[in-house]
Write a protein that binds this DNA or RNA. Structure first.
Lengths: 115, 115
DNA sequence: TCACCATTTCAACTTTATTTGAAACAAAGT
DNA sequence: ACTTTGTTTCAAATAAAGTTGAAATGGTGA
């Protein structure tokens, strides 16, 4: 451990097995990366709005577009991000694709509500 | 409401007062933006790691740097992002600045643990 | 087959985030 | 005053995310 650090911090740190001890308790890189990706998908107002809209009811892309008032291709981009994060899923129904929250999406929307 | 949409979706939508009804239930732009900003701060593995480390115990910047193995200025950048999101706060103690989770930071770390 | 509709893809572009290394600061000890 | 130490700031560079409008896809029904 570095020599020059505040005493109370050093003590507390040594009780945990030093820096090594702390490092050992942290999640692995893989896990951190996966979670960061999830949160990154949530890090955009438009995408949050899509999630809230789908929490009301499943919607086809064209209705989501109406709700958000954005272009088709812009919407498609954001839907892709949400799909990749497994927060939403679409299934074909006639000529439309109906999007809805996944189980993860549901959990996440409930979580977001607390912040 | 758009004329051409799948029937079950239209029905469900009309029960809610049409698109207007759905739009009315969505959070305001201000609120969406604020939350997006919070999640954006969480959208980076290094920053998540910092939060987990501080969840173990408060640490001075130099120890966080040791834990992460990154440069001073890089660390400082990420600390700034976390500070701005009010997830962490630092207070001077002697020659060091000791960082710790805020109350929000605490709640958030507990939340992250579920995903 | 043809035209149409909902949606996606693409490449070019703009914007925002992150990294870098050097310099600046501010407090503490000499 | 001078140096050291811990931390932040800055401007320049790089990388990643988001936007645009046009074109492509793929299914539907005339």
């Amino acid at each position: 451990m570095a020599i020059n650090i505040p005493d109370p911090i050093r003590k507390q740190c040594e009780e945990k097995g030093g820096l090594e001890g702390i490092i050992a308790k942290l999640p692995e890189a893989r896990s951190l990366k996966a979670r960061a990706k999830l949160f990154q998908a949530l890090g955009d107002p438009m995408r949050l709005k899509i999630l809230f809209a789908l929490d009301e009811q499943p919607l086809c892309a064209c209705l989501i577009r109406e709700v958000l008032g954005i272009s088709d291709s812009k919407l498609s981009y954001h839907l892709t991000v949400l799909k990749q994060a497994k927060l939403i899923a679409g299934k074909k129904q006639g000529q439309w694709i109906i999007y809805g929250l996944t189980e993860l999406g549901n959990q996440v929307v409930r979580m977001i509500g607390k912040f």
